[in-house]
Every structure is written in C-alpha cells, then in structure tokens.
C-alpha cells in the first residue's frame, strides 16, 4: 500500500486545487510520509470484517413530507461573490 505512484499534481487537479511549484514539492514529501505511515494498516487482518461507515447504526430516517420555511432567494444569494437578477453568476463554461 506504500504509494510510489502517488502523483500530487494529478490528485490536486482531481481535487480542483491549483498548487504552486513549492507546494507540489512540500506536499509530495509530507504526504508521502503520511502514506508510508498509514501503510501499517496492511498488517491488520481484516478478512471477514465488515466495513463501518457510521458509528451509530441508523437506517432509513424519514421525516414527514411537509412544506416548511427555508431560505428565501435573497438570503440564499446574500453571500455570493457575484450575483445578478436573482441568480449566481458562474464563470463562463462554454467558449
């Protein structure tokens, strides 16, 4: 599980984070150490062990399908860095 093929630039791109060249170098070495450390998990026998996503088993939590107050448009848009005519302005997607 040690990670010789850990490509920090590629993963940062997947995570939509633009790194500086210095960050790429530092993170490669720091995260390499972390990945080496967590490789210890390979020592644990996990055969026949169910994975656990949640510490407290709760299933199918429903609430009554009744309308209730939610944020109005003005409140929802209040923190937007750019907005106009009641809409979020998104950077151009298609040229």
């Amino acid at each position: 599980m040690s990670a010789p093929d850990f490509n920090v630039e590629y993963v940062a791109e997947l995570a939509r984070i633009k790194l500086t060249p210095e960050e790429i170098e530092t993170f490669r070495s720091q995260l390499g150490q972390v990945l080496d450390h967590v490789a210890k998990l390979n020592e644990v026998d996990v055969s026949d062990v169910e994975p656990m996503a949640h510490s407290f088993p709760v299933y199918n939590v429903f609430r009554a399908d009744e309308p209730r107050e939610s944020l109005d448009r003005e409140a929802a848009l209040f923190n937007a860095p750019r907005q106009a005519q009641g809409l979020f302005i998104v950077t151009k997607v298609v040229e």
Binding site: M1, V38, N42, V44, V46, V49, E50, P51, M52, A53
Partner: peptide
C-alpha cells in the same frame, strides 16, 4: 486499498 480497509479497521 485505503478507504475500504480503513473502514474495516474502524469496525475492529
């Protein structure tokens, strides 16, 4: 290798 295995260790 990572996430699923870690979740199993969490069970333990």
């Amino acid at each position: 290798a990572y996430y699923l295995r870690a979740q199993k260790v969490r069970t333990l």
